[in-house]
Design a protein around this nucleic acid. Sequence first.
DNA 1: ATGTCTTTGTGAACGCGTGCACAAAGATGG
DNA 2: CCATCTTTGTGCACGCGTTCACAAAGACAT
Lengths: 258, 258
Amino acid sequence: MATGRTHRPATRSRGIPEATVARLPLYLRALTALSERSVPTVSSEELAAAAGVNSAKLRKDFSYLGSYGTRGVGYDVEYLVYQISRELGLTQDWPVVIVGMGNLGAALANYGGFASRGFRIAALIDADAHLAGRLIAGLPVRHADELEDIVEDNQVSIGVITTPAGAAQEVCDRLVAAGVTSILNFAPTVLTVPDGVDVRKVDLSIELQILAFHEQRKAGEELSEAVDSVTPPVAAKTVRGGIKRPGSDGDLPAVMPA
Amino acid sequence: MATGRTHRPATRSRGIPEATVARLPLYLRALTALSERSVPTVSSEELAAAAGVNSAKLRKDFSYLGSYGTRGVGYDVEYLVYQISRELGLTQDWPVVIVGMGNLGAALANYGGFASRGFRIAALIDADAHLAGRLIAGLPVRHADELEDIVEDNQVSIGVITTPAGAAQEVCDRLVAAGVTSILNFAPTVLTVPDGVDVRKVDLSIELQILAFHEQRKAGEELSEAVDSVTPPVAAKTVRGGIKRPGSDGDLPAVMPA
DNA sequence: ATGTCTTTGTGAACGCGTGCACAAAGATGG
DNA sequence: CCATCTTTGTGCACGCGTTCACAAAGACAT
């Protein structure tokens, strides 16, 4: 039933584990820094430290790409940069559209990390007609009506969604229908897509909530949570004909970015 | 040696698996939506569909929190919202500072998802003196000199870093020294922190690169990569006294957000 | 009170990811 | 050419996370 298979499809693509793929950009960044300092070679130990991972893990990751190291010496920095770039597809040009020109969309448009990695912003799109034509990061905002044309004309295969949550699924559907097969979703919604389309999700609120959980745990270790356990709403009990619900409704309103 | 243990410490906190904690905000969002529609109860199957996960996984996740369901009926929406909120620590007030008021920092400051989930922006901080005093999202930007005072005065335990990569580690060190124990890092750098401090990383560039990898794989399935395999730089070979490196240096310059 | 029917909660099996530890490879020095 | 020393590449074991499948629990009807 095409349940919006977000994050980690666990499908091992061409023998390279998903976890490894997720680390390749990390290695690439560390290697690029070394390259700029004209460091010729690097050992797995050094590179692992720079990337913040275990050295054995790094060697195993690289082993999936092939034997690019030299025993007794290490890895050739330039060569590895090239191999990883190629493996990730960064030697190609990837036209990208960003839909939703709120604060976040504008931030992404200005984000330098795109262009330098082979990602070219083909267009910025927004549903607000007032924004149409305005320049953001040197590019004119196009109206949402043009979405299909833009995607098809520019052979766009990657779409970034930074719209409010309510609009995300519709935008997603239109992108997919027009030919987009990879989506980076910043809207706090579960997107449903057909098979063959990849969705990755970035959710700022979720990250903070995870931090809050650990933070609470750290704080609650000394004082064994005496404050929070005062009168928790009584557990749901059946009363013939339904379930008694403790609180009222309308807490924690759903929110959206931008 | 305190290697910047980013993401997933794999430390099972109080019996609740890390993977489960990461999904709780997802369930909470789905439940909140149901709550607003005044839906009294929901089955694991329905809620799982709304959250985009497997129903068995959802039930197991909830089982770590306790037995909050009613067999034959499902889960009480309001009660579950409360329980998850409490478990995540969202019933508390979490003062947060955002350091780095570039485009991304401003976007986060305007992001509505913070305040509504118990996260209160205690201050916006930037190193640029020209920005000091300017209002962003209704809050005045404070100068970086005040960082320590702000953190201590407001009992801030969570810090968000949206500075350029070069400044991130120093900002991180200062935040930690002042008492921050959880950091959400948007700068493309590996942060090194002492034990007891949690770091979560959000990297826009990495997400896109992962998408590109899969995209390339999809595209390369029909035409078996005839274009990209033309004359790959010859593998590194030793020539007595060093390693022959194929390309020159200076490719893919390191970049930073904002 | 008893039976039926729905849905939870979980035991068990499986697969992926991680990290240890070591053998093989190759560079370097004599 | 041989010995030594460094560093890679990987076999193996372990633990976490996911999923299946089912027994137990409780609602609801009679």
